[in-house]
Design a protein around this nucleic acid. Structure first.
Lengths: 208, 208
DNA sequence: AGCAGCATCAGCCAAAAGGTTGAGAGACCA
DNA sequence: TGGTCTCTCAACCTTTTGGCTGATGCTGCT
């Protein structure tokens, strides 16, 4: 049988070469290309048509991993995409799955877990690290705590330190509306002040 | 001549094996041991007495990189320690240098930069990535922007989302004093609201 | 002794944020 | 069609925060 062709996408050379070394210990994997950015990933997928793509979410410059996944999905490319990243923030997980990721692995995963995830992915199976799965479960159990798109947008700007007035101007809505959204966000995050909301968002939701 | 013996410390297996693969391309490096935690690092230094230690700061469990550096320094071990991490937050840099790190490399560094840093370190030279160096320089140039111990303490609590009243209670000072400290902190951070201060602190000062 | 930096506190005022209630428009779905 | 969700806005009121000025005691350095 032929080997599973893999495209690695990570802006850190050490991670790419580490992953390559790990996959090299298995006879059925063949790393056919490496990309250091989202843009490069799009090119190399077209060029090599790998059986599976392993992608980090945090990319230094240019489009990030989420956007790269989205654009790959919009082309008619069929290869499964596995997210391979350091953090298991709620927001990242949801966005990645939403964008069309096939699985979500953390970088401290054991080699066997990585191998199994890759082999599973090419067969159409979804695989994710245990901490990631438990976070998703919790979100499904408590849908009341999931922010609406608009709320998430506002929260993202909030973590930049903007005032209500600035938020309104930026989003083209009145300050009254901003306050309404904020009240809902506070309730969902379980906080009472914008300070706590920012702290929670940056730490728990991974908005950096 | 004999090879430079290296100990790798990083909780991510992929990073260790990537670094090992990179160093393997050079004839003068020999990775004699790998540690996945601070505790393990301390043991393996005793056991192998490597010529240089390459250490990540963020370690999943147990003592973190900074503490590991400090403890290594307190023993009579002489090997230079190179920090090899993802983020260049002001706080991390200062703390690492303070703990006795010999250099500070970012994970997106080019292979040649890594090789040069390792070779330099064993000869007693300090090496750091350009962004890291520029941050240190800026701190030296603008001592006015350095927070006093009390201000740092307050800022740390601020990033937990506490109100002025709560800050006062926690630090056993009046709300008036809290406001005075905050005003100074805002000036030093170059912000005007607590929201922006929190955002800046968590992102730039690395208070997570 | 004098000066600078730090930490502490007070009072006053304006601005911002938060709590509450109520309400209308559009989307979506049963 | 009716119900639910989301997004939008308003008015009112209380609390919190921020800007300003000024002041005290302590420490360390010169």
């Amino acid at each position: 049988m032929s080997a599973i062709t893999v495209l690695l996408v990570d802006d850190h050379l050490v991670v790419r070469s580490g992953l390559k070394a790990l996959l090299g210990t298995q006879p059925d994997f063949d790393v056919v290309a490496e990309a250091a950015s989202g843009e490069e990933a799009l090119e190399l997928v077209d060029l090599h048509a790998p059986a599976v793509v392993v992608m980090d979410l945090a990319m230094g410059a240019g489009i990030d991993g989420i956007e790269a996944i989205r654009q790959l999905r919009q082309r008619n490319s069929r290869q499964p995409i596995l997210v391979f990243t350091t953090y298991d923030s709620d927001a990242d997980i949801v966005r990645a799955v939403d964008a069309g990721a096939m699985g979500y692995l953390l970088k401290d995963a054991a080699p066997d877990e990585i191998f199994a995830a890759l082999r599973g992915a090419v067969q159409g199976k979804s695989v994710m690290s245990a901490p990631v799965a438990s976070r998703l479960f919790q979100q499904l159990r408590n849908p009341d705590e999931v922010l609406t798109p608009r709320e998430a947008e506002l929260l993202s700007l909030l973590t930049q330190g903007l005032s209500n007035r600035e938020l309104g101007q930026r989003l083209f809505i009145s300050e009254a509306t901003v306050k309404t959204h904020l009240a809902h966000i506070y309730a969902k995050l379980g906080v009472e002040t914008r300070a706590a909301a920012i702290a929670t968002a940056i730490r728990r939701e991974g908005m950096r």
